[in-house]
Design a protein around this nucleic acid. Structure first.
Lengths: 123, 123
DNA sequence: TCTCCATATCGATGGGCGTCTATACGATCC
DNA sequence: GGATCGTATAGACGCCCATCGATATGGAGA
């Protein structure tokens, strides 16, 4: 688990209710979460993340991904770097190829913070 | 529930697993979700949302919120407008005051898309 | 070693956005 | 109706960022 990333206490995470909704976020918390959301807040990066996750083995190399977009290779590489540096993608080099893999824990923490883990809790 | 907002099928929502991780997001889906995340991806707006949610009755007027920030009133007003227009805040005018209220359903849908609704599903 | 291929870095550019000041709107009260 | 108070809009400015073309890096094969 990546408690350190969002700095959710185990209680907050386990309590299974929206920390965002329970008590006011501190300035520090907000400034730590915002960059993560900013990294996600791009159509290309959302699709990249989803493509990587849905790929066989949960990982994909750049060559697998670039074809899905009408963008240049440097641009794709840039987006992958953003996702990697923020902690949403793991990066592994095997031979000439670089494989990216989704860090599910980060996404899970983020979702817990945003919406909690209540299945039918819309009220 | 606001299925229409993110356009999650009931199955995707109920299936309670990360749609983002299950199959590649369509271009249309990504372009619909990204603005929502972009609206959230700002420290001030995160804190605004959280302040509104944590306020008594789940709603707060601008005057309650502005004091928590070192920003001008128009700037706060601008951020509230962004959150309102994207569907994260409801807006009600009572007399001279305007009250904002968090739309929990939108947040819940978003969280379901990002991380699913699995309590301890980090893997 | 030379070449080729996959990926990353660099520098430039155009557009979007967070913030400000100034001002407008609209409701309440005297 | 005029003053006042809460909130929103308008316009301007500076910075960040998505994208590009050009180039660098570095492993694999001949």
């Amino acid at each position: 688990m990546s408690k350190s990333l969002l700095e959710l206490t185990p209680v907050q995470t386990v309590a299974c209710c929206q920390p965002l909704m329970r008590e006011p976020l501190s300035v520090a918390q907000a400034e730590r979460v915002a960059p993560l959301l900013k990294a996600l807040a791009d159509p290309v990066r959302l699709r990249l993340l989803s493509l990587v996750a849905a790929h066989v083995g949960g990982e994909a190399c750049v060559c697998d991904l670039a074809d899905a977009f009408d963008l240049t290779q440097p641009t794709i590489s840039h987006h992958l770097k953003v996702l990697h540096e923020i902690g949403l993608l793991d990066r592994t080099k095997r031979g000439v190829w670089v494989y990216y893999k989704v860090r599910t824990d980060t996404l899970t923490d983020l979702a817990a913070l945003i919406g909690g883990t209540l299945p039918g809790s819309a009220r």
